[in-house]
Computed example of a mutant assay.
Amino acid sequence: MSTSQPLISIMMPVYNGIDTLALATNSLLKQTYPNWKCVIVNDGSSDGTKAFLDNLTDPRFVIVHFEKNLGRPIARQAALDAAQGEYLAFLDADDFYHPEKLAEQVQILEQYTDVDLVSCGNACYNAAFNLETVRGCGNGIAKVYEYGHRLNCALRTSLVRLDLARKVPFNTKLKHAQDTDFMQRYLVGRKYISMPSVRYYYSEFVSVTGKKILKTYYYSLIHHSSLLKYAFWPNFKAMLVTVGKASFTAVVLPFTDVNYFLKKRGRVPTTSENEDFNHVCKQLNIHGKV
């Protein structure tokens, strides 16, 4: 490991993640960027998560066990408190990274010292490990974020500067959308870059249910209503769109598959994105892709 490379801490909260942890952690071991530590907070899991984590031998994994389930925002804050180094990344325990993710993102933040967050595209896959959609891809041009306006990126795909992140604690009262809340407070008046390439793989078509979609709309309404005083028209329009989507979903959902709604969140993957995904799956020895 080259100590001249900046240290990246990776935040991973997990609750009952025994079925997916091996994939998530293996994608870190396959990173071309070696100088990282992953703070995994076991949020009181009742399956085999604790035993799996205690058997990780790579010293770059830092394990924190909660005796009982305290909720994702508290687990996130514990990971933030334990983080070290110059940069902070995020990985959900049921997702995985492209091998070049950390290397490419840290290179951008090292080169552009006035940029404080870099995100990448994320591709969503199904239970058979086939890509369904892609979203969050940008044009690689730095933008300044104005509080209350829409961001075409997600915290899970991002790399941020740790010294700045420490100044923005997670809102532990938010049961949902605490990542969006954190990201928007972190970025106020700061520059960010959205990479055009997919470097994060999201298990959306495995983990998201119709009930979760409706809950997302509910918390989106609460979130945008809280931002009305900062940017009225963008958030008012977002609320109207959310109400329309929620109403349509509630009526149609009983008569169709949840994938119908998930596919509307992104675009169809390109041939090169599919080929890249299949290559990564082979590197990670994912069943059906070897």
Rank of each mutant, 00 (worst) to 15 (best):
G189M: 07
V258M: 04
A231Q: 12
K211A: 15
I222G: 08
A250G: 06
G210F: 06
L253F: 02
V208D: 05
K237L: 15
R190K: 15
D257P: 00
A231M: 04
P196A: 07
H224Y: 15
L240I: 15
H176A: 02
R199P: 01
Y192C: 05
I222Y: 12
H224W: 14
L214A: 07
K212T: 09
F205Q: 06
A246Q: 10
Y218L: 12
E204N: 04
T180D: 09
M183Y: 04
S207E: 14
F205G: 03
G189V: 06
V208Q: 11
F232D: 11
L187P: 01
D181Q: 00
E204Y: 03
Y217P: 07
L228V: 11
I213R: 02
S194R: 05
P196M: 08
T249Y: 05
H176I: 00
I213E: 04
F248R: 15
S207W: 09
Y186Q: 02
H224G: 04
I213G: 02
A250Y: 08
G210A: 06
V206T: 12
F205I: 05
Y186T: 01
S247Y: 12
M239A: 13
S194F: 00
T216P: 01
H223M: 10
Y219S: 04
K245I: 03
I213K: 03
Y218A: 08
D257N: 11
V251R: 11
I193M: 04
T216A: 14
F236K: 08
V252R: 13
S203W: 03
Q178R: 00
S226C: 10
L240Q: 14
K245E: 14
H176R: 04
T216Q: 13
L214V: 03
L228K: 10
